[in-house]
Amino acid sequence: MIYELRIYTILPGRIDAIRERFSAHTLGIFARLGMQVCDFWEDLEAEPKLYYTMKYESMEERTRQWEIFSQDKEWNEVKQRSELDGKIVERIEQIFMKRAEYFNL
């Protein structure tokens, strides 16, 4: 199992737009496509950042899921509509992780 931490730096004044896009659309599209979000956070220091983790069986599965997502008609329509007033995301960082074998929940 692999995990991906995704960090979105949001452009100034666009945090409400990204909140709306994730809550009303993106998370539902992820679910419909079988993409598993483990958890989701906003920066505590009022930085315009979002953090979330996703879980995959393998890097190949991760690549396949994101290719399907990027070509999804609903996602592309939502993205286009949500960016009519300008881009929302300045930068996306990705960190790939595996659970430490010595840690037990």
Rank of each mutant, 00 (worst) to 15 (best):
R14D: 03
R14T: 02
I15F: 15
I15V: 14
D16Y: 02
D16T: 09
A17M: 03
I18K: 02
I18L: 10
I18E: 07
I18N: 05
F22E: 04
A24H: 13
T26G: 06
L27M: 10
L27A: 06
L27Q: 04
G28D: 02
G28Y: 01
G28W: 00
I29E: 04
I29P: 01
I29R: 02
I29V: 01
F30C: 00
A31T: 13
A31M: 01
R32P: 03
L33D: 05
G34A: 07
M35H: 11
M35T: 08
M35W: 08
Q36R: 15
V37D: 09
V37F: 08
C38S: 15
C38Y: 15
D39L: 10
F40I: 09
D43P: 04
D43C: 12
L44C: 14
E45Q: 15
E45W: 11
A46Q: 14
A46K: 13
E47C: 14
E47K: 15
K49S: 06
L50V: 09
Y52A: 03
Y52W: 09
T53V: 12
M54E: 09
M54W: 03
K55D: 05
E57G: 10
E57L: 10
S58P: 07
M59S: 06
M59N: 11
M59E: 12
E60S: 12
E61K: 13
R62T: 06
R62C: 02
R62H: 04
T63F: 11
R64S: 12
Q65D: 11
W66T: 06
W66M: 12
W66I: 06
E67T: 15
E67F: 10
I68E: 08
F69P: 06
S70R: 14
S70H: 14
Q71W: 10
Q71G: 14
D72E: 08
D72R: 03
D72G: 03
D72I: 08
K73T: 00
K73D: 05
E74G: 04
E77F: 00
E77M: 07
K79R: 10
Q80L: 04
Q80I: 00
Q80H: 04
